[in-house]
Write a protein that binds this DNA or RNA. Structure first.
Lengths: 186, 186
DNA sequence: GTCTATAATTTGATAGAC
DNA sequence: GTCTATCAAATTATAGAC
């Protein structure tokens, strides 16, 4: 975990919220500064460029996301329950925060992102897929690794898409309908 | 179909390409004008505000997308083949154009879109779901309507997510892995 | 750490000539 | 339909005082 001042954390909080609403171009130094209660120039002190800020937001988001899931090979938790945790993590994004998944929206505009931000976005998915692949492998020890990885990719894609559709149709039950009975089957 | 000058179509072409890369904030009048070979003020002649341009891009995108699919109740085409058409339509987005689905990227940032653009985005999904629900119902005439609609939502979500992951991981085979064997099962 | 001041650029938009 | 000219606002960013 990075050692950061509380102001820096506040900046990340606001930047994340704005990015999860309007994407990488959906947040600005000025607007962040206004909401945090400082001046735009002061934001540059904490994060020199917008690249740095965007990458920091993405990295913190990813760290928190995976921390909330816990280790994939926790033997005291059934793989079915870990899978449910995964689905719930995405569901909270809309149900509690009314926000898009940061890396879902960054991923959609990945071709226009500065390299460091694009890289953090890619890492989010790689780490999520790795985590989920382990869970799948635990649930189906006899299934080949590729099957588990394929299931992890498909499940993650469905989650991101479920967020988009749920928000576009303005109906949280859309997410539930899509993820209902999301089986652990490989 | 709307009657538009060829310049207006050119503008829409460029705007769509840019929007499918960087989202709603990813295109500007000036940059469009430069690429089309006119001045920014001339773009305003064809589309008074950015809302209008964004909404027009989304509407044309949706019309074309559905036109490429053809009617859902075409009895001369098996529902399985229509489903494959649906998947292929998304696949072409990355495989041929190397672009995101316009309404996938718009949907991700829907909370920050001007109302007219958000509405067109919503309509894209409603029309796609309606089309796909019919196809599903044809494939499973005895299954309840809700099952068909739920399958349509899930399939569409998976497509949008597959585009995001495929682009983020910079690997088209990710899309194929996710959509492989996408059954017509309800 | 935060500020003022300022620069350089981009953006959406309009008025009016041709 | 397209242009020039222009505007007001927003954006990223830096220099230097406190």
């Amino acid at each position: 975990m990075k050692n950061r001042s509380s102001k820096a954390e506040e900046i990340l909080d606001v930047a994340e919220r704005m990015a999860r609403t309007g994407g990488y171009n959906g947040f600005s130094f000025r607007e962040i500064a206004k909401r945090v209660g400082i001046k735009a120039a002061s934001v540059h002190y904490h994060f020199p460029g917008k690249d740095d800020l965007g990458a920091a937001v993405a990295r913190r988001y990813t760290d928190r996301f995976l921390a909330a899931l816990g280790p994939a090979d926790n033997d005291s938790v059934a793989p079915e329950d870990l899978l449910q945790r995964y689905v719930d993590a995405y569901r909270r994004s809309i149900a509690e925060d009314d926000l898009m998944c940061l890396c879902g929206i960054f991923g959609a505009e990945i071709a226009d992102l500065p390299a460091p931000v694009a890289e953090e976005t890619r890492l989010f998915f790689e780490r999520c897929i790795a985590w989920l692949t382990r869970v799948m492998s635990r649930a189906h020890p006899d299934a080949p690794q590729e099957k588990a990885a394929a299931a992890a990719l498909r499940l993650t894609a469905t989650m991101e898409g479920a967020l988009i559709l749920s928000r576009s149709l303005d109906d949280v039950t859309v997410f539930d309908g899509i993820t209902y009975g999301m089986s652990i089957a490989p």
